[in-house]
């Protein structure tokens, strides 16, 4: 499977994503400079974490105007898989590929720690090897992960089963304490209606090897590979 890892000025998890898909999962992986306009050679496009354009103005606001984003929109329209992690999700929100917006964490601090998230929908290309209600342990590292959407939008997300991950405690319950950033309903990841564009705050690429303290992130990449194999 061919993965393209987009590099915006200020991306800093590009190498980690490349390592996860290219080395850990031994797939074809290629860095894509943000000025590229043709992504048709890839099966899956990853928008990695980081601080694209320094997160100046708003996280992701400037990156969405990079030339590559036109191609991302185009490939998403063709049904290619697009995975936005952390800053990547923020960019997808700013680009309108996913609904809602990101606010600063409610405690106003950057937060880096391992958190539990519950899998809400296993009927997606990114989660098909898991089961609903499964609790994953994944690292988070962000200052703006406080997801917001208006009530109408939230109802729509719920109705369409677009909420893929929620922050929970170790026993799988949503609570204020289990929520690291104030995100609405503990939302930690959502998918588009077509089911091929996922945005998530936790970093699955940082949890793919035993030596890094956890492997729950493998589920995302194994699912992508399995789903693609079945196509």
């Amino acid at each position: 499977m061919r993965f393209g890892v987009v590099v915006f000025p200020g991306s800093n998890c590009d190498a980690d994503c490349h390592h996860a898909v290219g080395t850990v999962f031994a797939q074809e992986a290629e860095y894509v400079w943000h000025e590229e306009k043709d992504l048709s050679r890839f099966d899956c496009i990853i928008l990695p974490g980081g601080f694209s354009y320094g997160d100046y103005l708003r996280a992701g606001a400037l990156a969405r105007f990079s030339p590559v984003m036109g191609a991302v929109v185009e490939e998403a329209g063709r049904g290619k898989l697009v995975l936005g992690i952390c800053n990547g999700w923020q960019i997808l929100l700013e680009a309108g590929l996913l609904p809602g917006a990101m606010l600063k964490n409610n405690h106003l601090q950057f937060r880096c720690e391992t958190r539990h998230v519950r899998l809400e929908n296993s009927n997606t290309p990114f989660t098909c090897t898991g089961h609903e209600g499964q609790v994953l342990s994944l690292p988070i590292a962000h200052a703006e992960g406080n997801y917001y959407i208006d009530q109408v939008g939230l109802k729509d997300l719920e109705a369409q089963r677009q909420i893929v991950f929620r922050y929970v405690d170790s026993r799988g319950r949503v609570s204020k304490e289990a929520n690291p950033n104030g995100s609405l309903g503990g939302i930690a990841g959502i998918i588009n209606k077509a089911g091929n564009v996922l945005g998530m705050m936790p970093h699955p690429e940082r949890a793919t090897e035993e030596i890094l303290g956890g492997t729950d992130g493998r589920l995302i990449f194994s699912s992508i590979l399995q789903w693609w194999g079945g196509q």
């Binding site: 998890c13 980690d16 601090q109 950057f110 937060r111 590292a141 890094l212």
Partner: peptide, 16 residues
């Protein structure tokens, strides 16, 4: 203090 620092980026930190 350290939960405000990204200590796991680059995927090489094996003792946090």
């Amino acid at each position: 203090v350290y939960r405000q620092y990204d200590h796991s980026v680059r995927g090489d930190t094996v003792t946090l």
